[in-house]
């Protein structure tokens, strides 16, 4: 009996290990390749460790690789993305929290229908929005600009952030709100002093979610940005598609890693809250 158990245990852990290796392999290849010189890449094995480690490819990807005619690396794109992501995440999270607070704790006639309609927004494919969104941005004079991109990401992120916060707040007992009302607190005071301090797990989830979505977005970035407001995903695409003489795999890999780094960092720093917050919301909601 115990022997049989051990056999299955080995099978389970073995398959998990194979799956993990399978998924980690590309990261390994990207990382090692980014540290190799072109000579080594051409002659060596894809999986071999770099013989002599060089950061030249990273340097080039960051500041001097060509993305089309312009040869200043990913740096300007990176800062564009930062300028876009920070306000977009902050605004969409804040609005989602307020929406969720209203839809769970200050229900009005028809609020369930409003919530249903917002929920519908989660399922709308973004491609459908491209044309009307372009028109809207033009109307607001925000086309081809970073504020325009922020606006698009806020609008498109609201459905998810509202859903997250609403489901989390449903689990907070209504009696807390009643007690605070009897204590003389109004809508905003209850939100800021009582609800928001209780929201750390769901705030973390939403920030990670929105950060990842917006940082990694390519579609809106390529469609709605101008020459000087392109985000890093577009920069990466341009860099990889610009061929000068030879394909510089090490630079491409370094560039891809630079583009992925912020989301990885956010995930590592706040990852444990992510899973905790997701399950907390799910079980209670």
């Amino acid at each position: 009996m115990i022997e049989q158990n051990r056999f299955w245990r080995i099978v389970v852990y073995g398959s998990l290990l194979i799956a993990a290796v399978y998924y980690l392999l590309p990261l390994y290849v990207m990382f090692t390749t980014s540290l190799k010189g072109m000579e080594e890449i051409r002659n060596g094995n894809l999986l071999s460790l770099p013989l002599d480690i060089s950061l030249a490819a990273w340097q080039k990807a960051w500041s001097s690789a060509c993305t089309g005619v312009d040869c200043s690396g990913l740096q300007p794109y990176f800062w564009n993305s930062v300028l876009m992501v920070v306000p977009a995440v902050a605004i969409s999270t804040a609005l989602g929290a307020i929406n969720g607070y209203v839809l769970s704790k200050w229900q009005f006639r028809g609020s369930e229908i409003v919530f249903g309609m917002i929920l519908f927004g989660v399922f709308i494919p973004f491609q459908v929005l491209l044309l009307p969104m372009a028109q809207t941005l033009g109307l607001f004079g925000m086309a081809s600009s970073i504020p325009g991109l922020v606006f698009v990401h806020v609008v498109c992120g609201l459905a998810s952030t509202t859903l997250f916060f609403r489901n989390y707040y449903v689990g907070i007992p209504d009696e807390l709100i009643k007690a605070a009302r009897l204590d003389g607190a109004g809508f905003w005071r209850i939100f800021l002093r009582i609800i928001l301090p209780m929201s750390t797990p769901i705030l973390t989830v939403t920030v990670i979610w929105q950060f990842t979505q917006i940082w990694n977005d390519f579609l809106f970035g390529v469609v709605f940005s101008g020459l000087d407001s392109r985000p890093i995903t577009v920069g990466l695409n341009n860099l990889a598609n610009t061929t000068t003489s030879v394909k510089e795999y090490n630079v491409d890999m370094a560039a891809a890693l630079i583009a992925a780094l912020p989301t990885i960092i956010v995930y590592v720093l706040a990852g444990k809250y992510f899973v905790r917050g997701l399950t907390a919301g799910a079980v209670k909601g």
Binding site: P173, E175, K178, A179, A180, P197
Partner: peptide, 14 residues
């Protein structure tokens, strides 16, 4: 008026 609730409704973060 002042009210005492079944769940006590104490503010958990304070």
């Amino acid at each position: 008026i002042a009210m005492v609730f079944q769940s006590y409704a104490l503010y958990p973060t304070m």
